[in-house]
Design a binder for these strands. Structure first.
Lengths: 108, 108
DNA sequence: TAATTCTTGTCATATTTTGCCAAATATAAT
DNA sequence: ATTATATTTGGCAAAATATGACAAGAATTA
């Protein structure tokens, strides 16, 4: 069973025997806020992914997959949507791709 | 090929021969902002779904499907994520469901 | 029990979103 | 073509939300 992004960060940190304060410093963060991030009470800012990747020597693409899957999962979860909603979403993704190809710009 | 939520609203409006001003009034909205919504330059606020459904006599569940599929599609589109990300997201959704069952609360 | 670490609450500030208005553009009618 | 009507766009102030920072409380460890 998978984990949230916050739990993932916490695991990285504890497996490397770091305190919140130590990791937070590396990420330009307050330790209190890192705690909140780990416990899902605040969002992790995308701009800090690079710092996280560098510090733990992580593959950036894999990290982004971890991060964005979290965003998407939470968005889907929040809407309490049904399977039909997701099928329709897939169609709309294709539509948006076509649209961007045609128009060059895409307002979201 | 599907349409965006904005395009869907515009279609509803034009098929019913309404001006922006007319529909906007029903939705407690400025006509300028309704225009932006239709053209994907502003978001449609969830709280107005009920007004939209009542005015056009739409099925609320279907309307929500239209609406949330849009949110999700755009979120996925924005992240430019790959298929792997979506698979992981699906796992995380299951995880979040389990978690809510266990803990009763869920921080997102 | 003392020290350290973690969690939670709060608040000022920064950022984003929203409603509203005015001007510019496009469309339709006469 | 001119006028009237409808739509789009830009901008701004206010509202809402997110963020960083600090302090106090709770949990963990030595």
């Amino acid at each position: 069973m998978k984990e949230t992004f916050g739990e993932y960060v916490k695991r990285l940190r504890t497996e490397n025997n770091l305190t919140l304060t130590q990791l937070a410093a590396q990420l330009d963060l307050d330790s209190a806020n890192l705690s909140k991030i780990e416990n899902g009470k605040r969002a992790f800012d995308e701009k800090r992914l690079i710092k996280l990747a560098n510090f733990f020597k992580l593959n950036m693409d894999k990290l982004k997959t971890e991060f964005f899957s979290d965003l998407i999962a939470k968005k889907i979860y929040q809407t309490k949507c049904c399977h039909e909603t997701l099928l329709l979403a897939e169609e709309k993704i294709k539509y948006l791709q076509q649209k961007e190809i045609k128009t060059g710009v895409l307002n979201l």
